Simulated assay, not measured.
Amino acid sequence: MDGVWAGARERVLAVRERPHWREVFGADWPGGHGHGFRLEPVLTEPEVRAVEQGLGVELPGEYRDFLLQVGAGGAGPDYGLFGHRVTGPDAEPGSGACALPFRPEATDELDGHEGAEPRPDDYADDEALRRDHAAWQARHDTLHASLTDGTLCLSHQGCGYYTLLAVTGPERGTLWDDVRAVGEGVQPVTLQDKPRVTFAQWYLSWLEHAERTAAEGRPRFRAT
């Protein structure tokens, strides 16, 4: 193995041997939901192509190589990476949403649409209000659902937040936070001074932090 993922699988699995690995967020969670610094087996090239066929899109290179060299899911930021189920030729086709254009500007469009919600004070006719609000709601639902078009959901952050990988459009290969649960749409993941973060930057930054925390423990704050 060479390139950006050289030695990454071995590093992840080794974290579990360090004394404070349970202190890494998402690693050890009641009910066996933590990722435990375990990784699923890597995929073969034909299996990755089958995943891509099911999604209807070619995966960005860093993530594709991760599946081939590190693992198909398991240990990773937050509660770990979702795995991939390789399906056969008779499997039901996917929704096709991954292959649609990823449009970050849709979050602003949704914000503008929400500001234009029909108000009862503007209507003398209840039937007209119901009609216009129904049309507004239908458009709202469409915009809300479209925010994740062209993305692959990688992981659950907790509290209804998710991490997405853009797989189409100019932002292809970058990471995004799905924070629709708090009405903030889809926002770019940032890292220090980087306004955009790729999958490898995101994952390897987490791994460095996990290794340090597992070896040294979380900082302890003392009252003065």
Score class of each variant (00 low, 15 high):
S205N: 13
G160F: 06
T174W: 04
R180I: 01
R85F: 09
L67D: 11
D149K: 04
A99K: 10
P170T: 05
Y63D: 09
A181W: 12
H140T: 01
L204Y: 14
A166C: 14
W29I: 15
G80K: 09
A14N: 03
T163P: 05
A116G: 15
E211S: 08
E109F: 04
C98V: 08
G31C: 04
D108L: 12
T198R: 08
T213F: 10
R218E: 13
L191F: 11
D28L: 08
G183Y: 04
P188V: 00
D108I: 03
K194T: 02
F66Q: 00
E105S: 15
V51D: 10
R9D: 14
C159D: 11
T44K: 05
A166W: 00
G183Q: 05
L164R: 08
A75T: 06
P93G: 05
A166T: 10
L204R: 09
P46V: 03
E171D: 15
L43M: 06
R119V: 03
E58S: 12
P89I: 00
V167D: 04
W176R: 01
D178G: 06
R130K: 12
R196S: 14
R103C: 02
H209G: 11
T224P: 11
G73M: 12
L207F: 13
P118N: 11
H140C: 02
M1Q: 06
V12K: 07
R119W: 13
A14V: 04
T148R: 14
F82Q: 01
E45F: 09
